[in-house]
Simulated assay, not measured.
Amino acid sequence: MTKVFIIDDHPMVVEGIKGLLQGEEHYPVVGSAHYALEALEAFRQDMPDVVLLDINLPDLNGIELCERIKKEFPAIKVLGISTFKERSYITRLMEKGASGYVLKNVDKEELIEAIRQVARGRMYFSMEASTAITTQRSSAQVPVLTSREKEILVLISEGLTNKEIADQLYISPLTVDSHRKNLLAKFTVRNTAALVKLGIEHGLIAL
């Protein structure tokens, strides 16, 4: 029996995966979490065998969480499951110790096969993920952002000030300023104009 745990901040996604695995007695879903820290606390109580991990989480991104999981719970196998199929996301997740990567459009049979393979200590990549890894991309790597950083990036692109963003998100202007500085650092740019330009180029800001 392989105990499965789901980490995804979208309840519908979690319920969808649970539905796919329902009735699979060899792959019971023993828990789920919408937040990274919530998941880590759950593992301290009951450690699963395989974690299905989304890249985009509200508190930590999936790549940072994968690193923490492998450091604190090295026996847990991590299988990335996301809508992102950029090579940079996949390779960085692998560098942090993940055993595989599939997209969220995966069907039941392939999801079960992916879980089976990583539980056995093997690597598994869906076809699209495998293609992304082997295809060399000339563009710069896409920075990994938290949900909050993405939210703030979009509001910055709309020309809102730190105070206006803070009022809209019910957080302090100092917190907004901290996120803004983190965004500049992650994109390695010095000003808002360059930040917005790269956000558009990477598809993080819709035109």
Rank of each mutant, 00 (worst) to 15 (best):
R180T: 05
L111F: 08
I115P: 03
K163E: 13
E158V: 15
L204V: 07
G23A: 04
A193S: 15
V176K: 01
K3W: 07
V196K: 05
S139D: 12
K181L: 09
P58W: 03
D8N: 02
V118M: 07
L65G: 00
V176R: 04
F84A: 06
K163T: 10
M47H: 11
T188E: 14
R87D: 03
K85I: 14
F73P: 03
Y89G: 06
G23D: 06
L65W: 01
L79A: 02
M123R: 13
I63N: 00
V176D: 03
E64I: 00
L21D: 01
E158W: 15
R87S: 03
M94K: 12
A129I: 05
P58C: 04
Q136W: 10
T134F: 09
V51G: 00
L57T: 02
V106H: 04
L184K: 02
D177S: 12
N162R: 13
I112Y: 06
G31I: 12
Q22W: 09
F73E: 06
P11G: 04
E151I: 03
L20W: 03
V176T: 04
V30M: 03
L52W: 06
M123E: 15
K108I: 10
M123D: 15
T146Q: 09
Q141V: 14
R190H: 13
K186D: 00
K197Y: 12
I63A: 01
D9S: 00
I7P: 00
Q22H: 09
N56H: 11
L155C: 07
L93S: 08
E67Y: 06
E201K: 10
A206Y: 13
T134L: 08
Q168P: 13
I205H: 08
K71T: 13
V142Q: 04
M123G: 15
Q136I: 11
T161K: 06
E24M: 11
E164G: 10
E201D: 06
V29R: 01
K96D: 11
I165P: 02
T91R: 13
C66V: 02
S88M: 05
I6F: 00
Q141W: 08
E164V: 12
V196N: 07
V154K: 10
D59G: 04
L195K: 06
Y170E: 11
L52F: 08
R137A: 14
L155F: 14
P173M: 02
L40P: 02
T135H: 07
V30F: 00
K85N: 12
S126P: 08
V196C: 04
N105Y: 15
K108Q: 12
L183Q: 02
M94V: 09
N191L: 11
L52D: 07
E24K: 08
G199L: 10
L40C: 01
V106W: 10
R116S: 12
F43G: 01
P11H: 08
R148Q: 04
I171Y: 02
E149W: 09
N105A: 12
V4W: 02
D46P: 07
P173I: 03
I112P: 04
D107Y: 07
L169A: 09
S99H: 14
K96S: 13
L40H: 02
I156C: 12
I205M: 09
I17P: 05
M123Y: 15
A166Y: 05
R148M: 06
V144T: 06
N105I: 12
K77A: 05
G16N: 05
K104L: 10
H34K: 15
V106Y: 07
E110K: 13
T131M: 14
R122P: 13
K71Q: 15
D49S: 05
I115S: 06
F43K: 00
D8F: 00
V51Q: 02
L198V: 06
